[in-house]
Write a protein that binds this DNA or RNA. Structure first.
Lengths: 225, 225, 225, 225
DNA sequence: GATGAATGAGGGTTCATTCAT
DNA sequence: CATGAATGAACCCTCATTCAT
């Protein structure tokens, strides 16, 4: 795995590291990769541009590092839920849905930053972004569904990889709908919340859960033993 | 509805109009909004920059027009399928899935351009893009599912709006997976096609159809007379 | 005398001529020579740019023609007053002062346009502007003062040319103070009119008259027979 | 008082500051605000455009700074003369006239630059230029004349503000006549110097002095005690 | 004569990156 | 190591003038 930071960055005290990361996350999430300004990031982080380029050789590297950093945080959230084999698949999916809504509040900038990555156009940057989060998610969703298939919860006729992909698409789209402007506008065309937000969130979660369970699971009454 | 073109553009002969549109679609799809170069667009279209800015007052307007133009084409493709009430819901969904694969070949640039729009960073351009395609899609998917619900094909317990949203998310994600670099890479993590492409497409379509039908439809054997 | 118009312009019907002149006067006065836009002038005049450039070969020529046109109008105003030998010099100066105030209301755009000319920078345009108004004014002011000197009204020890120049400077500065933004702001530093405008105008005229008479004329009580 | 420079400019060594100022003064004075070219200014000053825009955020700010800078220099010249209460009003006016001629040689570009400001078309830049020189001049001329009135040198019946305004107009017009092309051409209509320049300057000064003293002062023989 | 579409050089401004201190 | 001044290529947009119709 390529690393995008120089050693010098790792030697920094935690506070400075955090300031830089926060500044970069905010700038990239706010203005997008192209419009983000490295001078502004340095200023926000209260370091000099020179230093910033000591830590990260290029703007690109800084961005990729930040994406990687964000990925790890999101991976943790997801991992905790998905790896819990004591829960049924349905329960874990429900928890993932709650996570989507929760992170869209707590980690909105991180999500937006992450989404920026998918819009890097066709420049070669894209080939360099680590698919760690994607791989992580894929691996875990597949594992969960396979396990669920063994336990008779998940439909036996499904191609697990593609089913996991479809599930991931649903979760990702919902995440963006909650965090990113364009997808939020699109969301509202389908779901203009007249009732209060909290109730609406519950409804969205319940319906999406119903959708995913319908797609993935063997109906309760048809399960063996 | 705002128009983004000046009258002078509409007066142009079809060939020139097409050259300009094609040049712009390509440039925006290839490089993204920020990096797209108006001088290059003019050159590609074999007109002068001056003329380009006679037809479209700003780069922004050019982009918005091109997005609108692309939307209309995609709307036609979708409309033809979804509005055909002689077909069952399942059949129409299957056709939509075939459409996704087919357009990802024939209209890849258009799709990529469209995706660029969803990634406009957080600048105010976003608030100016017309959501015609999104509205169109929402309206039609909802209508189809409602109709299907009446006919007993679609599960009676679903919230149609949110079900349509979920379905749209699946279709959109798949479309991007077939057309846009980032989403394609992500797709391959789940589905690395060792077999030949055509067979793989069939499989993807079949599995996604299964997923959507499971989520949306009343199982055949449970339907009433 | 160079002419700046083509014959074709003179053949135009009076209405079209006037529309063009008015459009040009306004545009040049509003935005200054450099910023004035020939396309806008044509549009305002409801003719095509092509036609505009048939009548006037260049933007420069159009401007010079317009200046010349304005000069003639102003010359007429001034000529009527200054050439009236039945009046004393003091009376004529008083009338000129009233003219300054009056034209600053009725012909403000013309004055502003005229002032634009003095700001043409150092380009060669300047050497081409007709000094007809300047010559006219010089000739007439000198004549008036010479005549006044013969009649014993004007101080015998004055160099008439330079006295006329000083008087012209006073009148010109006051004109600009009443018509042009920068000079108006400067004027207000000296004369912030607390009382109503009309009374203030009277005061300005009276004091300037006193100033000019003090400078130019033999005091009443010292005049011979 | 708004400042138009960034701190970074003030930190520059004197030589570089001077090069930039000189380059800008020349460019603006030569070509006027609109036509002045920031790239040329940077080149003339032997710095990069980037640097220029570090010191001054916009062309507008650069211009305003330069005007402010010029104003201060001119204020010093004028202040030294006008504030000297040991001299009679007539003596001080004579010195001002000599100053006009002298600066028209030594600081011609500055004067021209200053004149450019008064010709800023009608754009909003005008409202942003500081009227410090104008205020300075007004304040000092008024003070001098008031003092002169107390001492019995200046006519008691004059409105001091308007008299000062008229005097300023004369001095300003003469200054432009000596420094700016258009006003110089106009000047020559009244005063075509056949004799040598130096003698002509003397004559112009003498006659203008006579004019101003006639307008402003109590004749020597009528003064009390 | 009249039209108005077409031209394209030119200019203010930005910003990732370097490097002397 | 840290600083931040300096660089300069690159980009969007304007507008006087031409010329085919």
């Amino acid at each position: 795995m390529r690393t995008f930071v120089n050693e010098s960055f790792k030697r920094l005290d935690a506070d400075k590291q955090e300031r830089i990361i926060r500044a970069a996350v905010n700038e990239f999430a706010d203005r997008g990769y192209e419009l983000a300004n490295t001078n502004d990031i340095a200023e926000r982080a209260k370091i000099s541009v020179g230093s910033l380029f000591h830590y990260f050789d290029t703007k690109e590297n800084l961005f990729l590092y930040i994406v990687q950093y964000g990925s790890r945080i999101i991976e943790q959230y997801i991992g905790q839920i998905v790896e819990d084999e004591t829960k049924s698949v349905a329960e874990r999916i429900e928890q993932l849905l709650h996570l989507v809504v929760r992170t869209s509040r707590q980690e909105k900038t991180l999500i937006r930053l992450y989404h920026e990555m998918s819009s890097l156009g066709n420049n070669d940057l894209l080939t360099k972004v680590p698919q760690s989060l994607e791989s992580f998610t894929a691996r875990h969703y597949i594992a969960m569904l396979q396990e669920g298939q063994k336990k008779g919860e998940v439909r036996p006729d499904l191609d697990i990889s593609l089913a996991a992909f479809a599930m991931d698409n649903i979760l990702m789209s919902l995440q963006y709908a909650y965090s990113c402007d364009y997808y939020n506008i699109r969301f509202q065309i389908y779901n203009n919340p007249w009732i209060d937000q909290e109730k609406n969130d519950e409804k969205v979660i319940a319906e999406t859960l119903k959708f995913l369970c319908g797609a993935l699971l063997v109906p309760e009454n048809e399960r063996k033993g």
